[in-house]
Write a protein that binds this DNA or RNA. Sequence first.
RNA 1: GCCGCGUUGGUCAAGGGGUUUAAGACGCAUCCCUUUCACGGAUGAAUCACGGGUUCGAUUCCCGUACGCGGUACCA
Length: 509
Amino acid sequence: MAKKVRVRFAPSPTGGLHLGGVRTVLFNYLFAKHHKGDFIVRIEDTDQSRFVPGAEEYIFETLHWCGLEPDESPLHSGSCAPYRQSERKELYGEYARQLVKADKAYYAFDMPQELETMRVKYKTADNPSPQYDHRLRMKMINSLSLTLEETERMLEDKVPHVIRIKMPENETVILNDMIRGEISFNTGLTDDKVLLKADGMPTYHLAVVVDDYLMKITHAFRGEEWLPSAPVHVLLWRYLFSEKEMPHWAHLPLILKPDGNGKLSKRDGERLGFPVFPLDWKDPSTGEITRGFRERGFLPEAFVNMLAMLGWNDGSEQEIFSLAELIEKFSIERVHRAGSKFDYEKAKWFNHEWIKKLPVDSLQSTVKSFFKEKGIEINNDALLKKMIGLVKDRCTLIPDFYDQGKFFFEAPTQWDLDSVRPKWTTEKASFFNDFASRFQSLKDLEPVLIESSFKNLAGEKNIKAGELQLPFRIMLVGEKKGPPVFEIASVLGKDETIRRIQNMLHQLG
RNA sequence: GCCGCGUUGGUCAAGGGGUUUAAGACGCAUCCCUUUCACGGAUGAAUCACGGGUUCGAUUCCCGUACGCGGUACCA
């Protein structure tokens, strides 16, 4: 049975994108691709005041970096264009008025102050947040409490108004969630949500239903925070279209902060020193920068892998998955119901695993541009490749390549002489003098040959080779780090190695 | 308050009535390897929220309680 799967991702360009949001997109994408369906991106920009310049571009750059290319979006014109809500505005009003005609919704003329008054007036200890619902709506100013003539006059006079759904007093609505199973709600407990705002723009509730219908969405994923308003969406489908055509819902669990409880927020990132956005994001109004995983040195493969494992696994012991494998193995039934805490240490582990796994060629450009940022322009790609091959197993994040490998491109300017001086002798100095000339005459720079030459000479001079290795390292690297010394000497070549030996011999006087 | 959703080690989690002395991973500790720093290898400490049922038997099913989270906006 060839079921056409269309899943939608509808970001609100309010600036940045939280981990939870990216994971929701990822699961959207994985499900769609697993079922060979379409992945659709629609932009929710209903509230102009919250639309931030650059945010939409940020969202698409994130998708691109992660490899989650949409099949339809404002950037890739598709069959259901336009994909920005502000460009679809006219559509929604008609559906809202259709609901009013059918007595499933009504005009409400209450001003913000009147709503505030209502909330204060009916507030009790038992009911700290009174709602605009079936118990209160006849006490408010709307087409239900007003006469037909009064309503018509107000509409003619263009009195600002919204359209609210008329929630049934006491009905049970059942939602079948792909992750949680059957969930039932009593309609009397939900307020009469605004569907169309005074400016004519739809709220999320109306837009999501209308768009999913028109875009023929078959499966819809969103965060758990939407569960409480799900009955409104079910009812809207029932009133406007048909519940049979309603997409299958999946409400994904939240990503929580590592310490304490609650949703992971931007603040947690700053407080605990890890990124919470996929890419660096600069809020244009405040100038505030939120650090991203990419700039912090994460590979997209690792980032995607890490997010997927937060709330999903395939039941096996496998933890490292490529995007292609995730698509192949993904199953919505195996998504966890409970929220999960974000663990930065584990996130770094994923990145380390991916750096080890990926071939040198795929790391090359990322490492190169990072060195450039640090002021080292690499022109010798052959050297770059050798360096990456030598150090990648010891790098957790991309910046580690700089710490582990910068000495391949720049001779040390400072030496950790303190670890050499105490045991330094004239015999050792003479060893290195002799070694330099012996090194010069080596036919082959295989690390093992360098090593045996080094050790033979040490034997001839009756010095323990081990005691000479540390000084040799300091000569080439400047400090106590990096891959095996003979490997380094091999890559550095004769001239550079000898220059560095002599340079430090000079330092040591 | 009300409504909804959750609850296996510090974290991510497998397991969904007995074969579990409850997998695996991250982190942590100890040891080995390495005369650099790492990687790697080995070992170890650490978990079924609580109370009632159902059952011969419950971590697993049911009901309560507690706790956490989410919602209760002309925000999404």
